[in-house]
């Protein structure tokens, strides 16, 4: 089955990103196709490489990055949500005159159209949120 996943909450504060990660990983391991993982609302905070959890805890951001590296997963942060919450890649830094970037590897910033397209292209859109 072709799936897309929407993540609506940030890491650690809420279970949504953990559940979405485990679901996505399990789906991929079962041989399903994951067309896209789209991060919205505070979910965009899953895409900052500056995250530093205590060493004895899971690393929510790196876990997503490693999954994307292994399966060539398309992980998109909503640009409007990212701008509000200070998630910046090189393009956004240049466009908005910011002095730094913080996006983690494997993530990219793009528009809400990517979410709508994912919903159209996939057999199921699975939403993880509050």
């Amino acid at each position: 089955m072709k799936l897309s996943v929407q993540v609506n909450e940030g890491p650690y504060q809420h279970q949504a990103s953990d559940s979405a990660y485990h679901f996505t990983k399990a789906a991929l391991e079962k041989g399903h196709e994951v067309f896209r993982v789209f991060f919205y609302h505070d979910g965009v905070l899953n895409g900052t490489r500056l995250t530093t959890p205590p060493q004895d805890d899971r690393h929510v951001v790196n876990r997503w990055v490693e999954l994307a590296e292994k399966y060539d997963l398309d992980m998109v942060l909503c640009v409007a949500a990212a701008q509000r919450r200070g998630l910046v890649d090189e393009g956004e830094a240049e466009r908005n005159g910011k002095d730094a970037t913080n996006i983690a590897p494997q993530f990219r910033i793009s528009g809400l159209g990517q979410l709508v397209e994912a919903a159209i292209q996939s057999d199921r859109l699975v939403v993880f949120g509050d």
Partner: peptide, 17 residues
């Protein structure tokens, strides 16, 4: 919370599809 507004943003963008 921002859910209502950001939901509306998806509806507005989604209209193009």
């Amino acid at each position: 919370t921002i859910y209502a507004w950001e939901s509306l943003e998806v509806v507005l963008i989604g209209a193009a599809f």
